[in-house]
Design a protein around this nucleic acid. Structure first.
Lengths: 237, 237
DNA sequence: CCAAAAGTGTTGCTTGTACACCCATGT
DNA sequence: ACATGGGTGTACAAGCAACACTTTTGG
């Protein structure tokens, strides 16, 4: 009773303060045809018709911002269990033309080879190479720049690829992914040695003979439960 | 006109969604007597009376979350122009007993030697060594853990100290700060060489003779405008 | 045969790390 | 005199970058 009335008082205290719309905006990255790509949606209505936009949505009453972001991703790509990480909050009072909206932004990594292409097409969405992005709505260009540098940061600490590449991949494919993320080339020999030295890749006895004459072994990430996955890279680029 | 009515429609669209209280919670770090300390406020009322809490406040209509955080910091420490950086958002629907509150958290670094001690005392606040923190309200312990690792991350990329130490400091003082942040010792000789090799410190012709028999030169951070401050450390700990 | 990628090896440079060592001085 | 921190030097190991070289095979 004591306790309950105390909470009531607290609730009263809060009422002096304004409430806000809270949104999530997701920078959804994928990798295809040697390029890092971003999933964008066209705006069908004014203001800013014709401009492109990150996928987003509003945070509802009984969900955390992460849950809201996962809901949005499921709705738009049909995928559960994808990599999702908080980036920065964007909150300038006038950042959205419609109303004051505080946006929590996320970085999502998706395997383009398994997402629901029909669902994406249905929404009019399009995968844009990050090197040739169109003009974006509101402050979304700033959000994307922020997401990209968060992605680079992550890629230089952890070996990513599980989230963006197919189950099996060659070391050249992994290197091309890293070159797409950092927009620079890596020495093939050194890249191979560094990546293998981490010890989280497993060579399969299958070769890819499409992309080279000699044929390159496929690799996969060791299963998470298979004992020792040290996981850490000290520094990448 | 076209434009205005379009914005009206947009505003209508937003109205389907709930609004939320948005708060900022600041992990305010300082350095004193060889220890890294966190500024905490006692809760004078139920629920959770007697527990301690981070300094926070609600985001108002016409301010960004950063502006809200700066406002809170000014109110509680009397300091403007302090280092402030976003950490993570915390948003579980039931994280606050009073109501559903979404909290954006920040890391703030302040120089204990110049903050307004009276103002802090007035609020009943207390500087706690991070190694001996009391029990905190709600999810604030999780927020602090997150802030601490963000601080370590930052300290390993940039040379911090300007934000926490007095204008002039000896290299031992700087090393002690880093030892407090990482909770490990650093080799004095190696630390000195590494830090000086960055080239952003300037030796003064003044010696500190209090803390050692021989006396140690004071250093300061080179003024920002003095040409080349490369600023980057590759990796610290 | 030749181009192109796969895969391995070598070498030199930079960095980190663990120390040893002398210096200055207050107690 | 000696303990304490200041400051410099050295020696070894680890990691990285540049690049040479061999292998394989489709065109």
């Amino acid at each position: 009773m004591e306790e309950e009335s105390a909470i009531l008082m607290l609730t009263e205290l809060y009422k002096q303060h304004p409430k806000h719309y809270v949104a999530v905006d997701c920078s959804i990255f994928g990798y295809e045809e040697g390029e890092l790509k971003l999933l964008l949606y066209p705006r069908g209505f004014e203001p800013a018709q014709g401009k492109w936009s990150l996928m987003g949505g509003f945070v509802q009453e009984k969900e955390s911002v992460e849950e809201a972001a996962r809901r949005v991703l499921l709705q738009t790509t049909g995928l559960k269990d994808i990599f999702l990480e908080q980036a920065s909050a964007f909150s300038k009072p006038d950042r959205d033309a419609g109303a004051r909206v505080i946006s929590m932004t996320f970085v999502a990594l998706i395997r383009i080879d398994i997402h629901d292409k029909d669902l994406v097409r249905e929404n009019g969405a399009h995968w844009w190479p990050v090197t040739k992005l169109p003009s974006l709505i509101f402050d979304h260009e700033e959000i994307v720049a922020n997401a990209l540098s968060a992605l680079q940061q992550k890629a230089s600490i952890d070996l990513i690829g599980k989230e963006l590449l197919p189950e099996m991949f060659t070391l050249m494919q992994l290197r091309n992914l890293y070159e797409a993320i950092f927009q620079k080339t890596f020495d093939p020999g050194n890249f191979r040695k560094k990546v293998l030295s981490i010890g989280i890749l497993e060579r399969l006895n299958i070769k890819n003979t499409n992309e080279s004459k000699k044929g390159a072994y496929y690799y996969q990430f060791k299963p998470l439960d298979s004992g020792l996955r040290s996981e850490r890279i000290v520094k990448f680029p």
